[in-house]
Computed example of a mutant assay.
Amino acid sequence: MIQQNVSILAQLQTFLTQISPQDYSRPLPLLQAQPIGRQVRHCLEFYICFLESISKPNALLSYDKRKRDLRLETILEEAQAQVLFLQKQLQKQQIPLVELILESDAPQGKMRLVSSTERELLYLLEHTVHHLAILRLSAQCYFPYIEFAGDFGVAYATQKNEAESNASKSNC
Rank of each mutant, 00 (worst) to 15 (best):
M1C: 12
I2W: 02
Q4D: 12
V6K: 12
S7D: 14
S7Y: 08
I8G: 07
L12Q: 07
T14E: 12
F15L: 14
T17M: 04
Q18K: 07
S20E: 00
P21D: 07
D23R: 00
Y24A: 08
Y24L: 12
Y24S: 06
S25I: 06
R26V: 12
L28M: 15
L28R: 00
L30P: 00
L30R: 04
L30I: 10
L31R: 02
Q34H: 14
P35S: 13
I36V: 15
G37R: 03
Q39E: 09
Q39L: 07
V40F: 06
V40G: 08
C43G: 08
L44I: 04
Y47A: 11
L51D: 01
L51F: 04
E52W: 04
I54G: 08
K56H: 00
K56R: 04
A59F: 03
L60K: 05
Y63Q: 02
R66M: 11
K67V: 12
D69P: 02
D69K: 07
R71D: 11
L72Q: 00
I75K: 02
L76G: 02
E77W: 04
A79H: 01
Q80E: 10
A81E: 15
Q82S: 07
Q82H: 01
Q82D: 00
V83N: 13
F85A: 14
F85D: 05
L86S: 05
L86I: 13
Q87L: 02
Q89L: 11
Q91V: 11
Q93H: 13
P96T: 07
P96W: 03
L97N: 09
V98H: 03
V98N: 03
E99D: 10
L100F: 00
I101T: 04
I101V: 08
L102C: 03
E103T: 00
E103Y: 02
S104E: 07
S104A: 13
Q108C: 05
Q108V: 04
Q108E: 07
Q108S: 09
K110Y: 02
K110V: 01
M111K: 15
R112A: 01
S115G: 05
E118H: 12
E118M: 04
R119Q: 14
E120I: 04
L122Y: 11
L122E: 13
Y123T: 05
E126C: 03
H127F: 01
T128Y: 06
H130R: 10
R136W: 01
L137S: 14
L137Q: 14
S138W: 03
Q140W: 06
F143I: 08
F143G: 03
I146W: 03
I146M: 08
E147R: 10
F148C: 11
A149H: 09
D151G: 12
F152Q: 01
A155Q: 11
Y156N: 15
Y156L: 15
Y156W: 10
A157S: 15
T158C: 10
Q159A: 06
N161V: 11
A163L: 13
N166G: 13
A167W: 09
A167T: 07
A167V: 06
K169A: 14
S170Y: 14
N171K: 15
N171E: 15
N171S: 14
N171I: 14
N171L: 15
C172N: 10
